Amino acid sequence: MKKILFVTVLIICWGCHKNTPKNVEIVALPNFIQYHEDLYRKTDCGDTLAYEKFKEEYSKESYFPILLPICLKMADKYHYRHAYWDAYLCLWHAFNDDDKNVAIYDLTRFDPDSRQMAIYYLGEAAKRGNQQAKDILIKQYIR
Rank of each mutant, 00 (worst) to 15 (best):
H79N: 14
D76T: 07
G123H: 00
A103Y: 09
D111E: 02
A125C: 05
H93K: 13
Y105P: 04
Y121P: 00
L89W: 10
K77P: 08
A94K: 09
K100Q: 14
L107P: 02
A87P: 03
P112N: 03
G129W: 01
I104Y: 13
D111C: 01
L107R: 07
R115T: 04
G129D: 00
A83F: 13
D97Q: 09
R81H: 10
A94Q: 14
N96H: 02
A87L: 02
I104V: 13
L89T: 13
Y120E: 08
Y88S: 11
Y84N: 04
Y120S: 06
C90V: 13
A118D: 06
R109E: 12
A103E: 12
L89N: 09
L91E: 08
K73T: 02
D86P: 05
G123L: 00
D76L: 08
K127C: 09
A133S: 09
G129M: 06
M117P: 00
T108Y: 14
A87G: 07
G123P: 00
Y84R: 02
Q131E: 13
L72P: 03
Y105V: 07
F110C: 01
Y84G: 01
Y120L: 13
A125F: 02
A133W: 04
Q131P: 11
Y120M: 06
L107Q: 11
K77E: 15
G123D: 00
A103V: 07
L72F: 11
Q131G: 12
Y120G: 03
E124H: 04
A103N: 09
K127F: 08
A125Y: 02
K134S: 15
M74T: 06
K73P: 03
G123V: 00
A83Y: 10
L91V: 02
K73A: 02
M74W: 03
H93D: 02
Y121A: 00
Y78F: 14
K73L: 05
I104W: 12
Y78N: 13
D98Q: 13
K100H: 12
N101M: 12
D113I: 10
C90H: 02
L91Y: 05
P112Y: 03
A87H: 05
W85S: 14
Y84H: 11
R81C: 12
L91Q: 05
A94M: 11
D76F: 03
N101S: 14
L122Q: 07
F110H: 01
L72M: 15
A133E: 04
V102D: 01
L91F: 09
W85G: 10
R128P: 06
I119N: 07
D76S: 07
N130W: 06
R109S: 10
L91W: 03
A133K: 06
L107D: 14
R128G: 06
D111L: 02
Q116G: 08
N101E: 14
D106E: 08
F110E: 02
Q131H: 14
Y78G: 15
L107A: 08
R109H: 11
W85P: 10
N130V: 13
R115F: 05
Y121C: 00
A83E: 12
E124S: 08
Y121G: 01
H93I: 04
A94D: 08
D106P: 02
R115M: 07
T108G: 15
K127Q: 09
I104P: 05
Y80L: 05
D113G: 06
T108L: 15
K100N: 14
H82P: 15
N130D: 14
L122K: 06
K127N: 15
T108A: 15
V102I: 11
R81Y: 13
Y88A: 12
